[in-house]
Design a protein around this nucleic acid. Structure first.
Lengths: 214, 214
DNA sequence: TTAATTAGAGGCACCAATGTACCTAAAGGA
DNA sequence: TCCTTTAGGTACATTGGTGCCTCTAATTAA
């Protein structure tokens, strides 16, 4: 309703609410914009993503957006890179199974955390036309997890928990792939039990520790 | 340039090319439209998908489209369901490893076949807003593969190749998940060697047949 | 404090796609 | 064969986003 409280007669109309939102600039504004991008992606998807919608959600105008980014895609790229810059610390519980569970839980939480989770799907869909977007996703989200998992496996080899020959890219990628597919195709968050099932019935058996229904 | 070749003065202008394309109806038209939808999805993506573009690519007008479908999404749904109605026959080579390779090759070829492959990614991206789309994908593409793989595993159990306890949903889904992620995130077609690696280093080991570099 | 910067808000012309309407003629069934 | 259906083409008003413009005032650096 654009006419709520129509402009008062006198010029230099004060904005209806004196309690105007503080004007942001620099990083504070960037943070608001990035958050708006993810929220907008999550809510309306890449298909209906517009500069206008982002600006409105960020409580800003379109000018600050056009000034910085030529296209919504470029903006999404920066927002993604920003959101994915977290990256948790190393995992080393001393137990392979526990390590794997930590990795998978981390990935689940990171992938499915609020708007980011929904935004990821939207980005994947445009991968064919915007390789940079999906490359960012791969390099800053998937790859770090794979590297971390491989490290855990190597430590387990050193501890003698598993044989060195069993470690392979395929085994490292299996868990994240299942979680990703579950998220993208089935649209659900794997529960703790499901993560445990991945570890106990797929990854550990593939590493030479047969599953035994305890 | 809307004015290219502006309307000739006389009315009842004959279409410039006498060699008019034969007018299609019924299934022939539907096929052309469905093909156009997938091609359009693959080329411009869901983001830029328009009725206009689909009609133009199908060499048709928008009327036949609007007459049948309210939204591009509804049209995509039908096109997807149509494209995914193939479904190969049962797989039973008598050898577990060979069965798995056949399954994975089939899935690779089906998922990556031309326009359909690119279209799938586009559809996944809008999954959050159009559950029917991704449900179609899941029910007509992913699930049949999982069921078929499980059958192959059960036959292997009966043959005594593997133990019954090793068969689990996670093991069945591992291969398809890796292939899917490879396609969606890495944007590449798994080669035959990579499919073999998935079988030999992940699935078979998880089923109790440790990998041994021959 | 002053000056430079720039966010927030509004306006505007442009363009692409929408959704509808109409007309013609081709296809297929009677 | 006639006749019903409906595809192909065109036109049109409407909508919504774009990209740019301007003005004001809040913020920050000097």
């Amino acid at each position: 309703m654009p006419e709520c409280g129509r402009p008062l007669p006198e010029r230099r109309v004060r904005v209806s609410e004196q309690v105007k939102k503080a004007r942001r600039r620099g990083q504070a504004l960037l943070d608001a914009i990035y958050a708006a991008v993810l929220a907008e992606l999550a809510e309306v998807g890449f298909r209906r993503l517009t500069m206008e919608g982002i600006a409105a959600r960020a409580g800003s105008g379109r000018m600050p957006l056009y000034r910085r980014w030529d296209t919504p895609e470029a903006l999404v790229l920066d927002a993604l890179a920003d959101a994915l810059s977290a990256g948790g610390g190393p995992v080393d519980t001393g137990d392979l199974r526990e390590d794997l569970l930590v990795h998978f839980r981390r990935m689940t939480e990171q992938v499915l955390a609020g708007d980011l989770g929904a935004a990821l799907g939207a980005v994947v869909g445009e991968g064919a036309r915007h390789p940079e977007l999906v490359a960012t996703l791969r390099d800053r989200l998937l790859r770090p997890h794979l590297v971390a998992i491989e490290q855990s496996l190597r430590r387990a080899v050193e501890r003698g928990e598993i044989g060195a020959a069993a470690v392979s890219p395929e085994v490292c990628a299996a868990g994240p792939a299942l979680i990703t597919v579950q998220h993208l195709i089935n649209g659900v968050t794997p529960t703790g039990d499901e993560l445990a099932a991945i570890v106990d019935r797929l990854v550990l058996p593939a590493l030479g520790r047969p599953f035994s229904a305890s």
